[in-house]
Simulated scan of single mutants.
Amino acid sequence: MSLKDDLAALSADSVSGAAELLQKAATIALKYAETVPAGEIAEGLLSARPDMASVINLALEIKKHAGMTGVAEITWAFLHEHRKSFARAVNETSKLLESGMKVLTYSRSSTVLAALLEASSRGKSFSVYLTEGRPGMEGINLARELSNVGISVVIGPDSALAGFLKECDVVIIGADAVGPEYFYNKTGTLGLALLSKALEKPLYLSVSRDKLLTQEGISYYHVREMPGEEIISPVPEGVTVFNRYFEAVPVGLVTRMVGL
């Protein structure tokens, strides 16, 4: 495969969590570190995933330091810091979980998944409530991953989210990007956050530091319009399809950012 092919695959990935997408972006950078100019690698990553803060931050590090340090060294250093921050977020999030809890999560955050697995490995028994996560259906994938290790799962359609929230003790979600005023996560998170506030349910955001957007990073970040055919195919004449995977949510709706 070529750099163009690898970037296209990264761009099309609608299932992996942000931490997994960072790993895939880093793999691309390392693969072409000796054969493709650093600027081309960085611009390719920025174009492929303008909706993932960790990928943006890696690309900007490559652009900033490529004249002084090789792409491979920059990438390994970035991954090293990410793994430390990821482990901290997972550890702190897992401590929020107690036996008997009903936990609601939305979409599929690899950080939240790791925290749930960590808490379960420590002998904590809890139930996780999920919705399917259309159009990518990543909630179904998460349900399988959790049930495979014996974690109790309740899953329903996305329309069940409000009802599930009433049943649950806590909401724990991840984020794809965190700015000064807003964080970005799967579309539907804004409604979940607003209702959590209204029902006085704690909402925790489990994130590693590489999700933080710098002022420069904010200028590159944008939410992509995805194919309408993922919602209705073929798209009827005269119908406009809204299909954005991510939306902005005020950070003021979050009880606590865990891991920062």
Rank of each mutant, 00 (worst) to 15 (best):
A59M: 10
G259N: 07
D176S: 14
E237V: 13
N148F: 04
V258P: 02
I41R: 01
H222K: 11
L30K: 14
S208V: 00
S127F: 01
R244F: 09
G179N: 08
G238F: 10
V207R: 08
M52F: 02
L97G: 03
V112C: 04
E247H: 04
Y32K: 04
T240M: 08
S147V: 02
V241P: 01
D176G: 15
A18W: 02
E138M: 03
F242C: 01
G238Q: 08
S159K: 12
I28P: 08
E167D: 13
L192E: 07
G17L: 06
E225C: 03
R256F: 03
M101A: 03
E40C: 01
P135N: 01
S16L: 08
M101W: 06
S11T: 06
S206G: 03
L195N: 08
I74T: 09
K186R: 13
A77W: 01
Y182T: 06
L146Y: 05
K124E: 11
H80N: 11
A114N: 08
K95W: 06
E225M: 08
S152K: 14
A175L: 05
L58P: 00
A8M: 11
L260P: 02
A8R: 14
S196V: 07
E230H: 10
S16F: 05
A119N: 05
P180R: 15
S219Q: 14
R88D: 10
Y245S: 14
K211L: 05
F242L: 14
M226T: 08
P202S: 01
S219N: 12
E20Y: 01
I155M: 14
L3M: 12
V170N: 06
I155E: 11
I218A: 14
T214D: 12
G139M: 05
G44H: 13
V55T: 12
D51L: 05
F126M: 07
I231K: 11
T69V: 15
S206C: 11
T255L: 04
A114S: 15
L212Q: 07
Y106Q: 02
A59D: 05
E20V: 08
Y204S: 02
I151E: 03
G44E: 10
E40G: 00
S11W: 00
G139V: 06
A143K: 04
K4G: 00
M257H: 00
N91E: 15
F86E: 12
I151M: 04
T35R: 11
T214K: 09
G259M: 09
Y32C: 03
L30W: 01
V170M: 12
E216V: 12
T35A: 13
A12H: 10
V178L: 14
K63H: 05
G163L: 09
G70Q: 02
F164K: 04
E216N: 04
V128R: 04
S219F: 02
V258I: 15
A33Y: 01
F78L: 07
K31V: 00
S16I: 07
G70Y: 01
L113G: 00
V36Y: 06
P180E: 15
G70P: 03
M257F: 09
S99A: 10
K186A: 09
L203D: 07
A248E: 10
G163N: 13
A248L: 04
